[in-house]
């Protein structure tokens, strides 16, 4: 465990906490894409199947369980408890256009053709694009609440920090996984436009508003 990896994990955890607090405190999930949240739940459940087969560390097991459980709680809050506040009309991204290509790609390009490894690879590919429905929703409404921006910033930073972790591990441990690296690169690039707006607007106290 190096500092980049730890900061990445913490950033991921902070993102999830911000999201849950936003929904709970404002009693509303307005501006949040339920479709991205469904994709994240699929990502965690397919990736962490190794909870049943491989033990890495207590930290690892704990974080995996937290990610799986919080993603399910988020979906419950959006689709049951605070359903009335959910932005159905703007959350129209077709997630099958992300799920199916990720699955096909995972069947074609993987480290080993076993069920658990193909599902792990699928989750890596799917995660890289899972934020698209959320970014699509923001672009459709043309704005995002600042709390939603903080959530997106923390969530985007997480894979960016992982990239630094992979550079570090390549040199320090001679360890690398091309599938994770390329997908992580794609994932981080998708956030670049948002990062730019976040730094130039939200951090200066302005609302994140897209040019008309």
């Amino acid at each position: 465990m190096n500092i980049f990896r730890l900061l990445g994990d913490l950033s991921h955890l902070v993102a999830i906490i911000i999201l849950l607090l936003k929904i709970w405190k404002t009693r509303s999930c307005a501006g949040i894409s339920g479709k991205s949240q469904i994709l994240f739940a699929i990502v965690y459940t397919t990736r962490y199947l190794d909870l049943f087969t491989t033990y890495v560390s207590t930290y690892n097991t704990f974080m995996k369980l937290v990610f799986i459980m919080t993603s399910i709680v988020t979906i419950f809050l959006m689709n049951a408890k605070f359903k009335a506040t959910y932005d159905h009309n703007h959350d129209t991204f077709r997630i099958e256009f992300l799920i199916l290509p990720a699955l096909v790609l995972a069947l074609l390009i993987n480290n080993e053709f076993t069920i658990i490894e193909v599902l792990w690879t699928f989750s890596i590919y799917l995660e890289s694009v899972a934020i698209l429905p959320q970014l699509f929703l923001v672009s459709k409404t043309g704005e995002a609440e600042s709390i939603t921006s903080h959530y997106l910033f923390a969530l985007g930073s997480y894979r960016g920090l992982y990239l630094l972790n992979w550079v570090y591990r390549y040199y320090a441990e001679d360890h690398y996984d091309l599938i994770a690296i390329v997908a992580g690169l794609v994932q981080t690039i998708l956030y670049c436009d948002f990062f730019y707006l976040y730094i130039t607007k939200v951090l200066k106290g302005k609302k994140l508003q897209l040019p008309a």
Binding site: V56, M63, E112, N165
Partner: peptide, 10 residues
């Protein structure tokens, strides 16, 4: 290869 397939990251 087995060691590489032990995914120790999240």
């Amino acid at each position: 290869i087995l060691d590489q397939l032990k995914h120790d990251e999240l």
